[in-house]
Write a protein that binds this DNA or RNA. Structure first.
Length: 475
RNA sequence: GGCGCCAUCGUCUAAGGGUUAGGACGGAGCCCUCUCAAGGCUCUAAUAGGGGUUCGAAUCCCCUUGGCGCUACCA
């Protein structure tokens, strides 16, 4: 039975790297008929926040990602403590009564030898250890990593291949804190074992932690899951993406607020560190599910391309534009409607007409926000005339001609692309002006913009009454 | 410092012993055209460096360099 999990610690907003980890887990589960589990790894009581939990839900919901089972580590502390007790009883761990090292702990690692264990703790007799614990002295439980035995821990990673590390290079890591709370390593492994996780798919920052985890699984007598580590997402400066240093680019909500289609953004994230290997880039969710495998995952970190001026990866923008214009138009209507509603527009009551307008303008837009911005004249009468459009209107005689065109259209019951074109061209011929003057002028009058769709399409998109009124208004 | 991982155009990537090292984004240009997009076409730009192995290396091995990760009672 294939079971995967996404286990974020709720200490901040949903990070795009985390979202991508969720996605790869989810793809693997959906591809292979497995179970997707969401588990909140909230053992760091100090740093957990409800706002962060909400942000994780918000982000995943927006991305249209789902899970089948849900757990929270804080509900499972008994399990973790029992696991620590089991390992301690087996003699594979010991109590360490040394006070917490604090922030300057790093120094001891730099003055030559790497830290492996605190002196005198590992060797303490069971009697002394039990007595001091019974006396209420605080302690941390550490794993007793085999020393000088030549023991090598190894596992095969689905992405990085065979991995091995000598136990002599692994320090006696903590399992249970003096507060009685489990550490990440213990809680994670105890839960993975209990939840029968078959595949652990997570960031490469955990690659070297995996040796410790293998040791814990063994101590617990649990089956060792199959591991797959993912290359990290990094900033153009090579550093790990962080909110503090890189700002909103790291947060999933930024892309939602910037008008991305969720499926497009997932598509983009998938392309960072994974490739279908057939040059495809724009893919539907189903296409990605159908082709996803660890074979396509890269081993080197991927740079999210952005600058301070342009906080969004240009390729993400391009891909969003591709989805926006090539999806069946009906599929984007709910998102467009929502954006317009949020921006305070009145949604057109004629659904068919509304859809045709969206279809007309979407090819030149890249995000949903464009419908509320550049799309304003199509959905509202309150729009300004841009300078470039003003130039088209200020062509000598243009305004009067446009107003006259408006009158002629008003006098004709027929109002189609063809009938409008006929009137416009006839008027231009009669007055000896180039049709272009009226064509470009019409676009300017109808939308306040010098650029946009074919002028004749514009008339029907704006609608008869509005078009006539706007033509007369420029006179 | 120790240990581990990684290294192809500016960015995302393909090629995994034999290719003019391919595609995409970005940038430049041309075509299309009532404008702007879209679309089509062209150009731009890469195997980190050095040694091996081999008839032949981006690809396998070693060294160097660089980057990243772990080295906490954070995850």
């Amino acid at each position: 039975m294939l079971r995967v999990r996404f286990a974020p610690s709720p200490t901040g907003y949903l990070h795009i790297g985390s979202a991508r980890t969720f996605i790869f887990n989810w793809l693997y589960a959906r591809r292979n008929g497995g179970t997707m589990i969401l588990r909140l790894d909230d053992t760091d009581v100090e740093r957990n926040t409800q706002a962060s939990v909400d942000s994780i839900y918000d982000g995943l919901n927006w991305l249209d990602l789902s899970w089948d089972e849900f757990y929270r580590q804080s509900d499972r502390l008994d399990l973790h403590r029992a696991a620590a007790a089991t390992i301690l009883e087996k003699g594979l761990a010991y109590r360490d009564f040394t006070p917490a090292a604090g922030p300057d702990a790093e120094e001891k690692a730099h003055d030559g030898m790497a830290w492996r264990a605190n002196p005198g703790q590992r060797e303490m007799s069971k009697e002394e250890s039990d007595a001091r614990a019974a006396a209420g002295e605080p302690f941390v439980i550490r794993y007793r990593v085999p020393r000088d035995t030549g023991r090598v821990v190894s596992f095969k990673d689905s992405v990085y291949g065979d991995q091995s590390k000598s136990c002599d290079d692994i320090e006696d890591f903590a399992l249970l804190r003096s507060s009685g709370m489990p550490t990440y390593h213990l809680a994670s492994c105890a839960d993975d074992a209990d939840l029968r996780i078959s595949n652990i798919i997570r960031g490469q920052d955990h690659l070297t932690n995996t040796f410790k985890h293998v040791l814990i699984f063994e101590a617990l007598g649990a089956a060792i899951p199959q591991f797959a580590h993912l290359p990290l997402l990094i900033a153009p400066d090579g550093a790990k993406l962080s909110k503090r240093k890189h700002g909103p680019v790291v947060s999933v909500t930024t892309y939602r607020d910037a008008g991305f289609l969720p499926h497009s953004y997932v598509n983009f994230l998938c392309l960072l560190g994974w490739s279908p290997k057939d040059n495809r880039e724009q893919m539907t969710r189903q296409e990605i599910i159908d082709i996803f495998s660890f074979e396509g995952i890269n081993r080197s970190n991927a740079v999210v391309n952005f600058t301070e001026e342009d906080p969004i990866d240009p390729k993400a923008l391009w891909l969003n534009g591709q989805h926006l214009r090539s999806l069946p138009v009906a599929e984007i209507m709910p998102a467009v409607t929502k954006v317009l509603e949020t921006a305070g527009y009145t949604i057109p009551t004629d659904a068919a007409h509304f859809t045709s307008v969206v279809d007309l303008i979407r090819a030149r837009y890249t995000t949903l926000l464009d419908f509320a911005g550049k799309g304003r004249p199509y959905f509202s009468d309150e729009f300004t005339i841009e300078p470039a459009a003003m130039e088209k209107l200020d062509v000598p005689g243009a305004r009067a001609l446009l107003a006259e065109l408006g009158e002629r259209l008003a006098a004709d019951a027929e109002f189609t692309e063809a009938s409008v074109e006929a009137h416009l061209r006839a008027l231009a011929t009669e007055r000896g002006v180039k049709a272009g003057v009226l064509i470009n002028g019409s676009r300017a009058a109808l939308t306040g913009q010098a650029v946009g769709p074919s002028a004749f399409h514009l008339f029907t998109a704006v609608g008869r009454e509005r078009a006539i009124a706007r033509l007369k208004a420029v006179a």
